[in-house]
Design a protein around this nucleic acid. Structure first.
Lengths: 353, 353
DNA sequence: TGTCGGACGGCAAACGTTTTCCACTGCGCG
DNA sequence: CGCGCAGTGGAAAACGTTTGCCGTCCGACA
């Protein structure tokens, strides 16, 4: 019922507990003769022994488990990054606890608490943090406790706290997307902003502004509307823009889900993409290529970022006891504009209201 | 560095280790006076103590961690079910390790092994199992070892092994989808089958056959093609069917991803949905409603199934020591046809080849 | 021949909990 | 006045590992 213990293996192999441990434990210096080794291995196999990671973790004060906290599991951005994380972790012999916070800061806290109790070796915050003072304070606090028992925390999207991060070049990508529209001849470019209190939105919006500025186009606040990072959020924001009646010929949405929402609304209003309206998204999630027309967007190397996060964590863990690892605190991963069929030079021009 | 231990809390509170444990451990019968309780609580708070789940798990031989094994994280079916799992688990105070096997049986095995070492309380196999003899044998073996230390395994899609399961009514749903097409007047209905060796495919195909049979339509093997459960798989399968030149007026795809692949191919060939060709999918993943036209499909209660899975696991765990819980081994969750705009009575009729 | 050191193996202590048993204190009751 | 009992607190034994330290054997070397 309760699994085979090392003690039983030792007994079956006719050796001491210590010897059995030395044979079965990968990281071990102590020499063991081949004959004894074989005996122990045989005993372990016949009892089909598997080490109790709890006991080991308790003893060595270090587990092989990470926790990844995402905002929403079903969002392709998050699950793709998470996939990069779990794959890289598995390759290193780590298990990953994946937590879906449902964008609820409180739930996020509970998850960090649970992860802490499990004494995970590291926590990866996949989603962008909030800008609010109280949130950042709570976060700082949590990271402190995590570190108090030797764990590390890292971010995969911008967060306020000064923690190691592997993040996409949101600002640069948004800048290039805007440049692209400008180069096509668009001058009145609407921006569908993400939630204002999320740092990721803020960065992307900066990129949009950079692009306008470089082109000498004045920012028109009436062409900016924000909403949740979802299809519904994007659609609702576009509805407001369209209904406001200020004309524009292109839309840059802060992420692909919002862009899809825009697509749906444009379709509903009989506006053709890209003939009547150009559309650009952000992230390059998988599905976006199946739409009609396939979406022009900014590719974020999601799996790579996940893997980089794990590599970073592993490095931090290795360095423990030694000197702190060199290198930058925040690594920025390049993003890339992917031009598909949803963008074109302005056609009929003005959007109907 | 190494976190606060209960011993330190006890010392700070001026009580014994035992008393401190009794105060801080939720499940505890032993009475403790209010005054002492307050003292311990204060000490714990000031040291910001958090229980070491490793030590606890080691002692009580029971952890509060589940493992969920999925085929592919990015697949909306899996991540939605997984979300149901993690949410329900969190509500019960459990953490969930989510493992992406990349459809690799070997990786799946490694994950089960790791999960076992962590002494997880239960494993949920989210994806359908393979039909192959060797796979089923390996699986049986793994479940046995899991159970040998008191863990439970359950399935959320059909698997060969006799293990408790919460699965969708694949066959019934496929039957209803087929009925729907028949009722619209279709007689030549193509079926885009999933991978043959996956049990889920098999069940859905059975439903398709049931539907044809009930309508008195002979199964035409030339109208069936299979592929991986992905957009590319569906598209490739449809290409084969279309190129074969045997006419049909409707397509029933074994899952939504494949249906999307079909949509893309039909679009590429200038075939209008539903005018030239009706299309039905399976699962009702989120994105499917954003396509043009929105897809008619069979809704699978994905989050509910995930939640039911953890409820089942929890029940099994509770029952340990008592008599085995009653009820069926396999619970089938009803699926529901969702009619959207991708189906209509046959129009121009024959597909071009 | 005596000594030294390398190779191997074992003993036992710890890691941080939970829990069983036991001790002590009052107090009501026969 | 002795007894049991309810209410409270503590001592200590586990849970299954890893690892520092020590002992033994054996061959090599002076």
């Amino acid at each position: 019922m309760s699994g085979t213990s090392l003690t039983e293996v030792a007994k079956a192999g006719g050796v001491s507990l210590a010897t059995a441990s030395r044979v079965l434990n990968p990281h071990n210096e102590h020499p063991v003769s081949d004959e004894v080794r074989a005996r122990v291995l045989a005993a372990a196999a016949s009892l089909n022994y598997s080490v109790n990671a709890l006991a080991r973790g308790l003893k060595v004060k270090r587990t092989r488990v990470f926790a990844a906290i995402v905002h929403d599991f079903r969002d392709p951005f998050f699950n793709t990054v998470a996939r990069g994380v779990t794959n890289a972790a598995e390759a290193a012999g780590y298990l990953t606890v994946v937590c879906d916070s449902s964008r609820d800061p409180d739930k996020e806290r509970r998850y960090v608490q649970l992860a802490q109790e499990q004494r995970v070796a590291g926590v990866l915050f996949v989603g962008g943090g909030l800008t609010s003072r109280s949130y950042r304070e709570a976060m700082r606090q949590q990271i402190a406790t995590l570190q108090s028992y030797g764990a590390h925390a890292i971010a995969l999207e911008p967060r306020g706290s000064r923690m190691p991060a592997e993040i996409p070049d949101n600002r640069g990508g948004a800048r290039r997307a805007t440049d692209h529209l400008v180069e096509l001849g668009h001058e009145r470019i609407a921006f569908i902003d993400g939630p204002e209190q999320v740092l990721t939105s803020r960065e992307r919006r900066r990129g949009y502004q950079d692009g306008l500025e470089a082109a000498g186009i004045a920012l028109d606040e009436r062409l900016v509307a924000s909403g949740g990072f979802t299809e519904e959020g994007g659609r609702a924001a576009l509805v407001r823009l369209l209904d406001a009646g200020v004309p524009f010929t292109a839309i840059f949405a802060s992420n692909d889900a919002m862009a899809i929402g825009c697509m749906v609304e444009l379709r509903a209003r009989g506006l053709a993409i890209p003939h009547d309206m150009s559309l650009v998204g952000f992230d390059d999630i998988q599905t976006v290529r199946w739409f009609d027309p396939p979406l022009t967007t900014v590719r974020v190397p999601m799996e790579e970022i996940g893997a980089a996060g794990v590599a970073r964590l592993l490095a931090l863990l290795d360095a423990d006891g030694g000197e702190p690892p060199g290198g930058r605190l925040v690594n920025v991963h390049p993003t890339e504009l992917v031009v598909r069929a949803s963008t074109a030079p302005p056609g009929r021009g003005k959007a109907r209201s």
